[in-house]
């Protein structure tokens, strides 16, 4: 068992544990903090796969910007453990059972898939995740989607202002 495998299992355990804690925390602020832990673990996976640009962008955009937005909204609404709506225990059980069935079906499917046998993802080598190569591809092959996404951002900005404005 080499260092890459140890790191993989460590980061996976951290991601899954934090994801479960997102669900079982009663306080929404704790849920946000656990979700940030999930994003850190996923960024660690990106670094392990040598996708350095995505690792940093994941930290800056998700853990840095989006989660702070969530935190602001939760604190503006003053949500805490007491205001948390409670769901019927049977509904919870039904949700967990259906989610678990989904997971079981897909895992058994992937285990049997012949396409996935003996294939491996490169870890630690390969330079496609570096910012130089990604930037070249982004501004040559993907320049139209890139420009369209700026329009999308503009419309999202205007939409957020219009919706958030006091009617």
């Amino acid at each position: 068992m080499n260092i890459t495998q140890i790191l993989f299992f460590l980061l996976s355990a951290m991601a899954i544990f934090s994801a479960i804690m997102v669900l079982v925390s009663r306080n929404p602020v704790h849920s946000v903090l656990w979700l940030i832990a999930v994003f850190f673990a996923i960024s660690g996976h990106y670094i392990l796969l040598n996708a350095q640009f995505l690792a940093i962008v994941n930290l800056i955009v998700y853990a840095g910007a989006i989660m702070v937005l969530f935190l602001f909204v939760i604190m503006l609404m003053n949500l805490n453990k007491d205001t948390e709506p409670k769901k019927n225990i049977w509904m919870k059980l039904a949700g967990v059972v259906s989610g678990g069935c989904f997971l079981m079906v897909l895992i058994s499917l992937v285990r049997q898939a012949a396409d996935m046998q003996g294939k491996a993802a490169q870890t630690g080598v390969g330079d496609i995740g570096l910012i130089k190569n990604l930037g070249k591809a982004l501004f040559s092959d993907f320049v139209v989607p890139f420009e369209i996404s700026s329009v999308l951002f503009l419309s999202a900005m205007v939409g957020a202002v219009v919706i958030g404005k006091k009617a």
Partner: peptide, 14 residues
């Protein structure tokens, strides 16, 4: 799947 279970079991929209 954990995300799906969360969508199905939690009632807080956030």
């Amino acid at each position: 799947s954990i995300g799906i279970i969360g969508v199905l079991t939690r009632r807080n929209a956030i």
